[in-house]
Write a protein that binds this DNA or RNA. Structure first.
Lengths: 226, 226
DNA sequence: ACCTGAACACCGTTCAAGT
DNA sequence: ACCTGAACACCGTTCAAGT
Protein backbone atom coordinates (compact mmCIF):
# COMPACT_ATOMS: atom_id res chain seq x y z
CA UNK A 1 0.00 0.00 0.00
CA UNK A 2 2.75 2.36 0.80
CA UNK A 3 4.08 4.19 -2.25
CA UNK A 4 3.30 1.49 -4.76
CA UNK A 5 4.02 3.58 -7.83
CA UNK A 6 3.78 2.40 -11.41
CA UNK A 7 7.33 2.94 -12.56
CA UNK A 8 8.82 -0.50 -12.38
CA UNK A 9 11.89 0.17 -14.53
CA UNK A 10 13.27 3.06 -12.58
CA UNK A 11 14.92 2.26 -9.32
CA UNK A 12 15.23 5.55 -7.49
CA UNK A 13 18.43 4.41 -5.87
CA UNK A 14 20.20 3.34 -9.04
CA UNK A 15 23.46 5.09 -9.74
CA UNK A 16 23.70 7.89 -12.26
CA UNK A 17 25.94 10.87 -12.94
CA UNK A 18 23.26 13.26 -11.71
CA UNK A 19 22.70 11.42 -8.49
CA UNK A 20 26.44 11.31 -7.83
CA UNK A 21 26.72 15.04 -8.45
CA UNK A 22 23.73 15.84 -6.23
CA UNK A 23 25.17 13.77 -3.42
CA UNK A 24 28.57 15.43 -3.93
CA UNK A 25 27.03 18.87 -3.58
CA UNK A 26 25.32 17.83 -0.37
CA UNK A 27 28.63 16.53 0.94
CA UNK A 28 30.54 19.66 -0.09
CA UNK A 29 27.93 21.95 1.46
CA UNK A 30 27.85 20.09 4.74
CA UNK A 31 31.52 19.31 5.29
CA UNK A 32 33.51 21.41 2.86
CA UNK A 33 36.03 20.46 0.23
CA UNK A 34 37.79 17.97 2.46
CA UNK A 35 34.46 16.29 3.08
CA UNK A 36 34.13 15.17 -0.52
CA UNK A 37 35.68 11.73 -0.47
CA UNK A 38 35.10 8.75 -2.70
CA UNK A 39 34.57 6.65 0.38
CA UNK A 40 32.12 9.04 2.04
CA UNK A 41 30.37 9.50 -1.27
CA UNK A 42 30.08 5.78 -1.98
CA UNK A 43 28.70 5.21 1.49
CA UNK A 44 25.98 7.83 0.92
CA UNK A 45 25.22 6.15 -2.39
CA UNK A 46 25.28 2.68 -0.84
CA UNK A 47 27.85 1.37 -3.27
CA UNK A 48 31.58 0.77 -3.59
CA UNK A 49 34.18 3.47 -4.34
CA UNK A 50 34.93 1.91 -7.71
CA UNK A 51 31.35 2.19 -8.94
CA UNK A 52 31.60 5.96 -9.10
CA UNK A 53 34.38 5.74 -11.65
CA UNK A 54 31.98 4.27 -14.15
CA UNK A 55 30.13 7.59 -14.30
CA UNK A 56 32.89 10.06 -13.46
CA UNK A 57 36.45 10.49 -14.78
CA UNK A 58 38.16 11.46 -11.56
CA UNK A 59 37.88 13.80 -8.60
CA UNK A 60 38.62 16.90 -10.62
CA UNK A 61 35.83 15.99 -13.03
CA UNK A 62 33.52 15.46 -10.09
CA UNK A 63 34.31 18.83 -8.53
CA UNK A 64 33.91 20.71 -11.81
CA UNK A 65 30.60 18.98 -12.48
CA UNK A 66 29.30 19.86 -9.02
CA UNK A 67 30.45 23.42 -9.52
CA UNK A 68 28.76 23.64 -12.89
CA UNK A 69 25.47 22.39 -11.50
CA UNK A 70 25.46 25.24 -8.99
CA UNK A 71 26.52 27.89 -11.49
CA UNK A 72 23.98 26.75 -14.07
CA UNK A 73 21.26 27.10 -11.45
CA UNK A 74 22.36 30.63 -10.57
CA UNK A 75 22.87 31.88 -14.10
CA UNK A 76 19.60 30.52 -15.43
CA UNK A 77 17.60 32.54 -12.90
CA UNK A 78 15.03 34.91 -14.50
CA UNK A 79 17.27 38.02 -14.67
CA UNK A 80 14.78 40.67 -15.70
CA UNK A 81 16.57 43.97 -15.27
CA UNK A 82 15.72 47.34 -16.71
CA UNK A 83 19.22 48.42 -17.71
CA UNK A 84 22.48 46.62 -18.55
CA UNK A 85 24.04 48.26 -15.52
CA UNK A 86 21.32 46.92 -13.24
CA UNK A 87 21.69 43.51 -14.87
CA UNK A 88 25.43 43.44 -14.18
CA UNK A 89 24.87 44.41 -10.57
CA UNK A 90 22.21 41.71 -10.22
CA UNK A 91 24.44 39.10 -11.81
CA UNK A 92 27.35 40.09 -9.59
CA UNK A 93 25.26 39.93 -6.44
CA UNK A 94 23.84 36.59 -7.52
CA UNK A 95 27.33 35.13 -7.85
CA UNK A 96 28.39 36.66 -4.55
CA UNK A 97 25.49 35.07 -2.72
CA UNK A 98 25.92 31.74 -4.48
CA UNK A 99 29.58 31.48 -3.56
CA UNK A 100 28.78 32.63 -0.04
CA UNK A 101 26.28 29.79 0.25
CA UNK A 102 28.65 27.26 -1.37
CA UNK A 103 32.20 28.36 -0.48
CA UNK A 104 33.82 25.44 -2.32
CA UNK A 105 32.47 26.82 -5.62
CA UNK A 106 34.98 29.66 -5.41
CA UNK A 107 38.07 27.49 -5.47
CA UNK A 108 36.48 24.98 -7.85
CA UNK A 109 36.01 27.78 -10.40
CA UNK A 110 39.64 28.79 -10.11
CA UNK A 111 40.75 25.22 -10.65
CA UNK A 112 38.84 24.85 -13.92
CA UNK A 113 39.65 27.90 -16.04
CA UNK A 114 37.99 28.08 -19.43
CA UNK A 115 35.58 25.28 -18.53
CA UNK A 116 31.81 25.40 -18.80
CA UNK A 117 31.08 26.88 -15.36
CA UNK A 118 33.33 29.83 -16.08
CA UNK A 119 31.94 30.21 -19.59
CA UNK A 120 28.41 30.58 -18.23
CA UNK A 121 29.45 33.55 -16.13
CA UNK A 122 31.61 35.03 -18.88
CA UNK A 123 28.69 34.88 -21.28
CA UNK A 124 26.30 36.50 -18.84
CA UNK A 125 28.65 39.41 -18.22
CA UNK A 126 29.64 39.65 -21.87
CA UNK A 127 26.09 40.08 -23.10
CA UNK A 128 25.46 42.93 -20.69
CA UNK A 129 28.74 44.66 -21.47
CA UNK A 130 27.76 44.53 -25.13
CA UNK A 131 24.38 46.02 -24.26
CA UNK A 132 26.22 48.73 -22.39
CA UNK A 133 27.63 49.90 -25.72
CA UNK A 134 31.28 49.12 -25.02
CA UNK A 135 33.07 48.97 -28.40
CA UNK A 136 34.08 45.54 -29.70
CA UNK A 137 37.81 45.92 -29.28
CA UNK A 138 37.65 46.77 -25.58
CA UNK A 139 34.90 44.35 -24.59
CA UNK A 140 37.27 41.58 -23.60
CA UNK A 141 39.38 43.50 -21.06
CA UNK A 142 36.25 45.04 -19.57
CA UNK A 143 34.50 41.68 -19.22
CA UNK A 144 37.67 40.12 -17.92
CA UNK A 145 38.02 42.85 -15.29
CA UNK A 146 34.44 42.39 -14.10
CA UNK A 147 34.74 38.60 -14.07
CA UNK A 148 37.98 38.64 -12.12
CA UNK A 149 36.68 41.15 -9.64
CA UNK A 150 33.47 39.23 -9.04
CA UNK A 151 35.20 35.89 -8.59
CA UNK A 152 38.05 37.43 -6.61
CA UNK A 153 35.89 39.17 -4.03
CA UNK A 154 33.37 36.36 -3.78
CA UNK A 155 36.08 33.79 -3.29
CA UNK A 156 37.77 35.89 -0.64
CA UNK A 157 34.52 36.47 1.17
CA UNK A 158 33.73 32.78 1.08
CA UNK A 159 37.15 31.92 2.48
CA UNK A 160 36.54 34.36 5.33
CA UNK A 161 33.11 32.95 6.01
CA UNK A 162 34.49 29.43 5.92
CA UNK A 163 37.19 30.16 8.47
CA UNK A 164 34.71 32.13 10.55
CA UNK A 165 32.43 29.11 10.69
CA UNK A 166 35.25 26.93 12.00
CA UNK A 167 36.81 29.24 14.56
CA UNK A 168 35.19 29.54 17.99
CA UNK A 169 31.55 29.46 18.86
CA UNK A 170 29.94 32.49 17.25
CA UNK A 171 30.57 33.82 13.79
CA UNK A 172 32.09 37.17 14.73
CA UNK A 173 34.93 35.47 16.56
CA UNK A 174 37.14 35.18 13.53
CA UNK A 175 36.85 38.85 12.63
CA UNK A 176 37.56 39.76 16.24
CA UNK A 177 40.73 37.72 16.18
CA UNK A 178 41.88 39.31 12.94
CA UNK A 179 41.03 42.79 14.20
CA UNK A 180 42.97 42.14 17.42
CA UNK A 181 45.96 40.89 15.45
CA UNK A 182 45.92 43.91 13.16
CA UNK A 183 45.78 46.28 16.13
CA UNK A 184 48.99 44.85 17.47
CA UNK A 185 50.99 45.46 14.32
CA UNK A 186 53.89 47.88 14.30
CA UNK A 187 52.47 51.43 13.92
CA UNK A 188 55.34 52.59 11.71
CA UNK A 189 55.24 49.67 9.34
CA UNK A 190 51.48 49.13 9.17
CA UNK A 191 49.71 52.47 9.68
CA UNK A 192 46.92 51.80 7.21
CA UNK A 193 46.09 48.28 8.37
CA UNK A 194 45.96 49.47 11.97
CA UNK A 195 43.66 52.33 11.04
CA UNK A 196 41.11 50.02 9.43
CA UNK A 197 41.33 47.25 12.05
CA UNK A 198 38.46 48.80 13.98
CA UNK A 199 36.22 49.09 10.95
CA UNK A 200 36.72 45.45 10.05
CA UNK A 201 33.76 44.06 11.95
CA UNK A 202 31.31 46.83 11.21
CA UNK A 203 31.63 46.62 7.45
CA UNK A 204 29.20 44.74 5.27
CA UNK A 205 31.17 42.78 2.68
CA UNK A 206 28.19 42.70 0.36
CA UNK A 207 27.93 46.48 0.36
CA UNK A 208 31.67 46.88 -0.24
CA UNK A 209 31.42 44.39 -3.05
CA UNK A 210 28.70 46.38 -4.78
CA UNK A 211 30.67 49.58 -4.26
CA UNK A 212 33.54 47.97 -6.15
CA UNK A 213 31.25 46.95 -9.00
CA UNK A 214 30.00 50.53 -9.21
CA UNK A 215 33.59 51.76 -9.23
CA UNK A 216 34.36 49.59 -12.25
CA UNK A 217 31.13 50.56 -14.00
CA UNK A 218 31.96 54.20 -13.40
CA UNK A 219 35.41 53.61 -14.86
CA UNK A 220 33.86 52.06 -17.96
CA UNK A 221 31.58 55.04 -18.49
CA UNK A 222 34.39 57.47 -17.90
CA UNK A 223 36.57 55.64 -20.42
CA UNK A 224 33.78 55.85 -22.99
CA UNK A 225 33.26 59.58 -22.53
CA UNK A 226 36.92 60.49 -22.47
CA UNK B 1 92.09 21.38 1.52
CA UNK B 2 88.72 21.52 -0.03
CA UNK B 3 86.44 24.09 1.59
CA UNK B 4 87.92 23.97 5.03
CA UNK B 5 86.12 27.00 6.39
CA UNK B 6 86.43 28.39 9.91
CA UNK B 7 82.82 28.13 11.10
CA UNK B 8 82.85 25.01 13.21
CA UNK B 9 79.63 25.68 15.15
CA UNK B 10 77.34 26.11 12.23
CA UNK B 11 76.36 22.98 10.43
CA UNK B 12 74.88 24.14 7.16
CA UNK B 13 72.61 21.12 7.04
CA UNK B 14 71.05 21.55 10.48
CA UNK B 15 67.29 21.93 10.52
CA UNK B 16 65.61 25.29 11.03
CA UNK B 17 62.31 26.93 10.21
CA UNK B 18 63.92 29.02 7.50
CA UNK B 19 65.61 26.08 5.83
CA UNK B 20 62.34 24.14 5.86
CA UNK B 21 60.51 27.06 4.27
CA UNK B 22 63.19 27.58 1.63
CA UNK B 23 63.11 23.92 0.71
CA UNK B 24 59.29 24.05 0.63
CA UNK B 25 59.35 26.94 -1.81
CA UNK B 26 61.75 25.04 -4.06
CA UNK B 27 59.43 22.05 -3.95
CA UNK B 28 56.32 24.13 -4.63
CA UNK B 29 57.97 25.92 -7.53
CA UNK B 30 59.22 22.76 -9.16
CA UNK B 31 56.27 20.42 -8.68
CA UNK B 32 53.30 22.53 -7.63
CA UNK B 33 51.06 22.35 -4.63
CA UNK B 34 50.75 18.58 -4.81
CA UNK B 35 54.50 18.35 -4.79
CA UNK B 36 54.77 19.70 -1.26
CA UNK B 37 54.76 16.58 0.85
CA UNK B 38 56.18 15.94 4.27
CA UNK B 39 57.91 12.89 2.89
CA UNK B 40 59.40 14.65 -0.15
CA UNK B 41 60.37 17.55 2.06
CA UNK B 42 62.02 15.41 4.71
CA UNK B 43 63.95 13.56 2.02
CA UNK B 44 65.31 16.84 0.65
CA UNK B 45 66.23 17.83 4.19
CA UNK B 46 67.75 14.42 4.91
CA UNK B 47 65.61 13.84 7.96
CA UNK B 48 62.42 12.11 9.06
CA UNK B 49 58.91 13.44 8.49
CA UNK B 50 58.40 13.92 12.21
CA UNK B 51 61.38 16.26 12.58
CA UNK B 52 59.60 18.96 10.61
CA UNK B 53 56.83 19.12 13.16
CA UNK B 54 59.28 20.44 15.72
CA UNK B 55 59.61 23.67 13.71
CA UNK B 56 56.24 23.87 11.98
CA UNK B 57 52.67 23.52 13.28
CA UNK B 58 51.13 21.71 10.34
CA UNK B 59 50.87 21.81 6.58
CA UNK B 60 48.68 24.90 6.53
CA UNK B 61 51.25 26.73 8.66
CA UNK B 62 53.96 25.60 6.27
CA UNK B 63 52.12 26.82 3.19
CA UNK B 64 51.29 30.20 4.73
CA UNK B 65 54.90 30.66 5.83
CA UNK B 66 56.19 29.84 2.35
CA UNK B 67 53.65 32.23 0.87
CA UNK B 68 54.66 34.97 3.27
CA UNK B 69 58.33 34.61 2.41
CA UNK B 70 57.52 35.22 -1.26
CA UNK B 71 55.18 38.14 -0.60
CA UNK B 72 57.60 39.79 1.82
CA UNK B 73 60.27 39.64 -0.86
CA UNK B 74 57.96 41.24 -3.45
CA UNK B 75 56.55 43.95 -1.22
CA UNK B 76 59.89 45.05 0.20
CA UNK B 77 61.24 45.85 -3.27
CA UNK B 78 62.39 49.48 -3.65
CA UNK B 79 59.12 50.91 -5.00
CA UNK B 80 60.17 54.39 -5.97
CA UNK B 81 57.30 55.82 -7.95
CA UNK B 82 56.54 59.40 -8.79
CA UNK B 83 52.80 59.35 -8.16
CA UNK B 84 50.45 57.22 -6.02
CA UNK B 85 48.79 56.08 -9.22
CA UNK B 86 52.08 54.89 -10.65
CA UNK B 87 52.90 53.21 -7.36
CA UNK B 88 49.61 51.29 -7.39
CA UNK B 89 50.22 50.17 -10.95
CA UNK B 90 53.76 49.07 -10.05
CA UNK B 91 52.56 47.20 -6.98
CA UNK B 92 49.82 45.50 -8.97
CA UNK B 93 52.20 44.42 -11.71
CA UNK B 94 54.65 43.19 -9.11
CA UNK B 95 52.02 40.95 -7.57
CA UNK B 96 50.89 39.75 -10.98
CA UNK B 97 54.41 38.72 -11.93
CA UNK B 98 55.12 37.14 -8.56
CA UNK B 99 52.02 34.99 -8.67
CA UNK B 100 52.75 34.13 -12.29
CA UNK B 101 56.19 32.91 -11.23
CA UNK B 102 54.82 31.08 -8.17
CA UNK B 103 51.29 29.95 -9.05
CA UNK B 104 50.74 28.25 -5.68
CA UNK B 105 50.98 31.65 -3.97
CA UNK B 106 47.59 32.57 -5.42
CA UNK B 107 45.65 29.82 -3.73
CA UNK B 108 47.78 30.01 -0.60
CA UNK B 109 46.75 33.64 -0.18
CA UNK B 110 43.09 32.76 -0.49
CA UNK B 111 43.44 30.08 2.12
CA UNK B 112 44.89 32.42 4.74
CA UNK B 113 42.66 35.50 4.82
CA UNK B 114 43.64 38.21 7.26
CA UNK B 115 47.06 36.67 7.82
CA UNK B 116 50.40 38.40 7.46
CA UNK B 117 50.94 37.80 3.73
CA UNK B 118 47.61 39.43 2.94
CA UNK B 119 48.27 42.26 5.37
CA UNK B 120 51.51 43.16 3.60
CA UNK B 121 49.64 43.69 0.34
CA UNK B 122 46.74 45.46 2.02
CA UNK B 123 49.13 47.86 3.67
CA UNK B 124 50.98 48.60 0.45
CA UNK B 125 47.77 49.40 -1.39
CA UNK B 126 46.30 51.26 1.57
CA UNK B 127 49.18 53.68 1.85
CA UNK B 128 48.94 54.61 -1.81
CA UNK B 129 45.17 54.98 -1.72
CA UNK B 130 45.61 57.39 1.17
CA UNK B 131 48.21 59.29 -0.81
CA UNK B 132 45.69 59.45 -3.62
CA UNK B 133 43.52 61.61 -1.41
CA UNK B 134 40.61 59.21 -1.05
CA UNK B 135 38.59 60.30 2.02
CA UNK B 136 38.87 58.17 5.17
CA UNK B 137 35.39 56.71 5.09
CA UNK B 138 35.69 55.29 1.58
CA UNK B 139 39.29 54.08 1.79
CA UNK B 140 38.38 50.59 2.86
CA UNK B 141 36.02 49.68 0.00
CA UNK B 142 38.46 51.20 -2.50
CA UNK B 143 41.42 49.27 -1.11
CA UNK B 144 39.34 46.14 -0.86
CA UNK B 145 38.28 46.47 -4.50
CA UNK B 146 41.86 46.89 -5.67
CA UNK B 147 43.11 44.02 -3.51
CA UNK B 148 40.41 41.66 -4.68
CA UNK B 149 40.92 42.58 -8.30
CA UNK B 150 44.68 42.12 -8.12
CA UNK B 151 44.49 38.77 -6.36
CA UNK B 152 41.56 37.62 -8.47
CA UNK B 153 43.16 38.27 -11.84
CA UNK B 154 46.60 37.12 -10.77
CA UNK B 155 45.22 33.90 -9.34
CA UNK B 156 43.19 33.25 -12.46
CA UNK B 157 46.17 33.92 -14.70
CA UNK B 158 48.35 31.63 -12.64
CA UNK B 159 45.77 28.84 -12.82
CA UNK B 160 45.72 29.23 -16.60
CA UNK B 161 49.48 29.18 -16.81
CA UNK B 162 49.61 26.15 -14.56
CA UNK B 163 47.20 24.15 -16.68
CA UNK B 164 48.96 25.38 -19.81
CA UNK B 165 52.24 24.02 -18.50
CA UNK B 166 50.70 20.58 -17.95
CA UNK B 167 48.70 20.15 -21.15
CA UNK B 168 50.48 19.12 -24.30
CA UNK B 169 53.94 20.02 -25.47
CA UNK B 170 54.01 23.76 -26.07
CA UNK B 171 52.44 26.43 -23.92
CA UNK B 172 49.86 27.67 -26.40
CA UNK B 173 48.21 24.26 -26.55
CA UNK B 174 45.94 24.90 -23.64
CA UNK B 175 44.61 28.17 -25.03
CA UNK B 176 44.07 26.50 -28.39
CA UNK B 177 42.01 23.78 -26.76
CA UNK B 178 39.90 26.32 -24.87
CA UNK B 179 39.45 28.46 -28.01
CA UNK B 180 38.37 25.39 -29.97
CA UNK B 181 35.89 24.41 -27.28
CA UNK B 182 34.43 27.90 -27.14
CA UNK B 183 34.00 27.98 -30.92
CA UNK B 184 31.83 24.90 -30.77
CA UNK B 185 29.36 26.34 -28.29
CA UNK B 186 25.76 26.94 -29.28
CA UNK B 187 25.60 30.27 -31.16
CA UNK B 188 22.23 31.23 -29.66
CA UNK B 189 23.17 30.52 -26.08
CA UNK B 190 26.79 31.72 -26.14
CA UNK B 191 27.12 34.55 -28.68
CA UNK B 192 29.60 36.57 -26.67
CA UNK B 193 31.91 33.72 -25.72
CA UNK B 194 32.02 32.56 -29.34
CA UNK B 195 32.84 36.07 -30.52
CA UNK B 196 35.87 36.32 -28.23
CA UNK B 197 37.13 32.77 -28.76
CA UNK B 198 39.36 33.93 -31.58
CA UNK B 199 40.89 36.75 -29.56
CA UNK B 200 41.75 34.44 -26.69
CA UNK B 201 45.24 33.55 -27.86
CA UNK B 202 46.27 36.93 -29.16
CA UNK B 203 45.56 38.78 -25.92
CA UNK B 204 48.24 39.64 -23.41
CA UNK B 205 46.90 38.94 -19.95
CA UNK B 206 49.32 41.39 -18.41
CA UNK B 207 48.04 44.20 -20.60
CA UNK B 208 44.42 43.34 -19.85
CA UNK B 209 45.27 43.25 -16.18
CA UNK B 210 46.72 46.75 -16.26
CA UNK B 211 43.72 47.98 -18.24
CA UNK B 212 41.51 46.74 -15.42
CA UNK B 213 43.62 48.55 -12.83
CA UNK B 214 43.29 51.73 -14.85
CA UNK B 215 39.55 51.20 -15.06
CA UNK B 216 39.32 51.06 -11.28
CA UNK B 217 41.64 54.05 -10.84
CA UNK B 218 39.50 56.00 -13.28
CA UNK B 219 36.43 55.02 -11.29
CA UNK B 220 38.05 56.29 -8.10
CA UNK B 221 38.86 59.65 -9.66
CA UNK B 222 35.42 59.95 -11.16
CA UNK B 223 33.85 59.21 -7.78
CA UNK B 224 35.96 61.91 -6.17
CA UNK B 225 34.98 64.54 -8.74
CA UNK B 226 31.31 63.70 -8.79
C1' DA C 1 66.02 20.70 22.97
C1' DC C 2 65.86 18.39 18.97
C1' DC C 3 65.56 14.41 15.98
C1' DT C 4 64.17 9.43 14.35
C1' DG C 5 61.14 6.38 12.04
C1' DA C 6 57.58 3.18 12.72
C1' DA C 7 52.65 3.29 13.09
C1' DC C 8 47.82 5.09 12.52
C1' DA C 9 44.09 6.52 10.03
C1' DC C 10 43.20 8.05 6.19
C1' DC C 11 43.33 9.29 0.81
C1' DG C 12 42.44 8.62 -4.93
C1' DT C 13 42.54 5.18 -8.21
C1' DT C 14 42.75 0.55 -10.36
C1' DC C 15 41.19 -3.85 -11.60
C1' DA C 16 39.98 -8.65 -11.47
C1' DA C 17 35.82 -10.63 -10.68
C1' DG C 18 31.07 -10.75 -10.57
C1' DT C 19 25.87 -9.82 -12.48
C1' DA D 1 26.66 -2.39 -19.30
C1' DC D 2 27.22 -1.69 -14.76
C1' DC D 3 28.72 -2.73 -10.12
C1' DT D 4 31.75 -4.86 -6.17
C1' DG D 5 35.42 -4.54 -2.97
C1' DA D 6 40.00 -5.81 -2.19
C1' DA D 7 44.50 -3.97 -3.19
C1' DC D 8 48.06 -0.42 -4.37
C1' DA D 9 50.57 3.52 -3.66
C1' DC D 10 50.25 7.15 -1.49
C1' DC D 11 48.95 11.02 2.20
C1' DG D 12 49.26 14.18 7.14
C1' DT D 13 50.12 13.50 11.76
C1' DT D 14 51.48 11.30 16.17
C1' DC D 15 54.50 9.47 19.44
C1' DA D 16 57.52 6.40 21.89
C1' DA D 17 62.17 6.19 21.80
C1' DG D 18 66.52 7.94 21.14
C1' DT D 19 70.65 11.76 21.50
Amino acid sequence: MVKKTRTPQRREDSLSRDRIIDESIALLDSSGERGLTFRALSERLATGPGAIYWHIDDKSDLLTAACDAIIARTMSAPMVSTTPKAAIRALALGMFDTIDAHPWVGSALTRAPGQLPMVRILEGIGQQVRALGVPDNTQWPVVSALLSYILGVSGQNAANAHLARQSGADRGNFLDEVAAMWSELDPDEYPFTRSVAGQLRAHDDRVDFLAGIDLILRGIESAQDH
